[in-house]
């Protein structure tokens, strides 16, 4: 079980695309309130499973091939903050939109944090392996529609209540699916970078002259 004790502030502010804005007391207070409520509502859950990369239907397109180059095994993972988090954000959208925006950004940061924790577990399960970074359906030319297949293999609807809808949107919405390659040799440093991101023309970070960590 993963329990979050705090939520990454810098990451939250980055999602709010305000990394260049000077913090003030009002904003600080709003962040504190939101963090407290979100930690109460979030119920992080995750699943992961190791697969052989030569015997799977999940390798579709060039991006994933490049990503898993040299990896004979890979880990499929999914994580979610649960439906209470969605409800918290939904309710805030009625009562206090400013709070809703902060909660939304903070929940995105939180689910990434959960993935980070899961990655630590994967590392401890595979002490000899080298790990690629997390690659998700929708990156590069890797089809978003594979989300459903990921969830089916992980039995996620039944085990942690994570589903997709007909348009491959994950529900609860603050959720992630990803694949991590496991290699016996060090991973050749491939910068993920904007070029392999399908948001590169519209990205709010790039518009603001910064970058995400992708």
């Amino acid at each position: 079980m993963i329990t979050l004790k705090s939520i990454d502030r810098d990451e939250t502010l980055r999602y709010l695309s305000g990394s260049r804005v000077v913090m003030n007391a009002g904003m600080e207070e709003l962040l504190n309130i939101c963090e407290e409520e979100l930690l109460k509502a979030a119920s992080p859950k995750y699943l992961y499973i190791t697969i052989n990369t030569d015997n799977t239907d999940l390798i579709i397109g060039e991006s994933i091939k490049a990503h898993l180059k040299g990896c004979s095994k890979a880990v499929l993972l999914c994580a979610t903050l649960g439906s209470e988090t969605d409800k918290l954000i939904r309710t805030a959208q009625v009562t206090d939109m400013a709070k809703a925006v902060v909660l939304d950004a903070m929940a995105s940061a939180a689910v990434e944090q959960v993935c980070g924790e899961v990655e630590k577990l994967i590392i401890s399960d595979n002490p000899q392996s080298f790990l690629t970074w997390r690659f998700s359906p929708g990156y590069g030319d890797y089809p978003l529609s594979l989300q459903e297949e990921f969830l089916r293999i992980l039995d996620a609807p039944r085990k942690i209540g994570l589903c997709t809808n007909e348009n491959s949107i994950l529900t609860p919405t603050k959720s992630v699916t990803a694949i991590i390659g496991l290699s016996n040799t060090p991973i050749e440093s491939k910068r993920k970078g904007c070029a392999s991101c399908n948001l590169n023309r519209t990205c709010k970070f790039r518009k603001a002259g910064t970058r995400c960590e992708f």
Binding site: L13, L16, S17, G18, R20, V21, V22, G26, M27, L30, D96, M97, A98, K99, V101, V102, A208
Partner: peptide, 14 residues
């Protein structure tokens, strides 16, 4: 002009 955060814009709007 990046002088305030989005939530602050919304607070003013509220």
């Amino acid at each position: 002009a990046d002088r305030i955060f989005l939530p602050q814009l919304i607070q003013s709007a509220n």
